[in-house]
């Protein structure tokens, strides 16, 4: 069981001693019970940090934002930045370091173990509470304790309302860390990894297409999935054919060579192109934080696509995304015994 005081003390201590220039964590949000990401820079702000089942955001995104701000201001900080990281946050931080987005010594990882549970799925919770509005949520062993608007408390088994990604979590413990709070309960199995994926794959080819056609038709191309994804740190996305980052170094040739692989219009074909491209580009990089799926306003089950790639990587290529800073990326490496039977 993680003591919130330990998180706050750690953050305060590090800021006081000047060991880090900021701490990325969660604080109580302004909407209901939900936490929100926060970057604190002063010791006294440490008391605003929270740790509860609504800490679903992948904070490594804010490491990316921090790096972009540095590039923009052309300033190189001398101190590292600290991040409070769940298992998934830590894994995506590893991928970012694998891709040289920042060095290991630029980041101080305060790991928090999800222990027996994980974060809440607000849709599931709303159903379970039958419309009652919670104002706070807390971990309590294998349960969540929710404070409702009328001040009453309600105890729910966490697994009933937990996010799917947490139920299927492969690694709820942040292995890469400078300091870790909470117990390592890796190996717990609430649901088998890739269980939803396996269920989906029972469908026939026609059913699968009907399903995805429905999804691709609904995508409004708001790019929330891309914006929330720590791996989508490129300044210009390959699927964008409108924006073009023009810097003094950009040559006329480069401008001319923009490729319109996919149009921006939200047609089925172009949405297919967008989501397929995203899945391919996240293969071996996505660590299943599930944020894309959580933020999708039209509820496209994006994790299925990314899970599919992740499971292929694990099962066919023995590749575990986010496991090692020094590893070659999935698609830049190969083994002699990679699958060959599909080739004529």
């Amino acid at each position: 069981m993680i003591n919130l005081k330990d998180i706050r003390d750690t953050a305060r201590d590090m800021l006081t001693k000047g060991e880090v220039r900021a701490v990325i964590g969660w604080q109580q949000g302004s909407r209901g019970m939900a936490a929100e990401p926060v970057v604190i820079t002063a010791p006294e702000q440490a008391d605003s940090l929270v740790w509860n089942p609504t800490c679903y955001h992948n904070l490594s995104l804010y490491l990316v934002n921090d790096k972009k701000a540095q590039a923009h201001s052309k300033q190189k900080p001398t101190l590292p930045i600290a991040i409070i990281a769940k298992g998934c946050d830590a894994r995506s931080t590893v991928v970012l370091m694998q891709e040289n987005y920042f060095r290991r010594d630029e980041v101080y990882i305060i790991g928090v173990s999800c222990e027996g549970t994980g974060v809440v799925d607000e849709h599931k919770l709303a159903v379970a509470l039958q419309g009652a509005q919670p104002t706070a949520a807390a971990f309590e062993g294998e349960d969540y304790v929710l404070t409702l608007a009328d001040g009453s408390e309600k105890r729910l088994s966490a697994r009933e309302v937990m996010a799917d990604r947490c139920l299927e979590c492969r690694e709820p413990f942040p292995k890469e860390n400078n300091l870790v709070l909470g117990e390592d309960k890796t190996g717990r199995s609430l649901e088998a990894p890739f269980a939803a994926l396996a269920r989906f794959e029972q469908k026939s080819e026609a059913e699968r297409w009907d399903f995805w056609k429905h999804q691709f038709e609904r995508c409004i191309r708001c790019f929330a999935c891309r914006s929330v994804c720590p791996m989508c740190f490129c300044d210009e996305c390959v699927v964008d054919s409108i924006e073009m980052k023009v810097v003094p170094a950009t040559t006329a040739q480069e401008k001319a060579d923009r490729v319109r692989w996919i149009e921006r219009s939200a047609t089925t074909a172009d949405n297919f192109g967008y989501h397929m491209t995203r899945a391919m580009h996240l293969a071996g990089r996505c660590i299943d934080c599930g944020e894309c799926e959580r933020v999708c306003p039209v509820n496209i089950p994006l994790r299925l696509l990314n899970n599919k790639m992740e499971r292929e990587a694990r099962e066919r290529f023995g590749y575990e995304p986010g496991a090692s800073i020094g590893a070659s990326s999935l698609v830049a490496s190969f083994r002699d015994d990679d699958p060959n039977a599909f080739i004529r």
Binding site: E99, Y101, K245, V247, A249
Partner: peptide, 10 residues
């Protein structure tokens, strides 16, 4: 294309 390279080393 320097403007697009992030130095990921893939």
């Amino acid at each position: 294309r320097n403007s697009h390279c992030t130095g990921c080393e893939m």
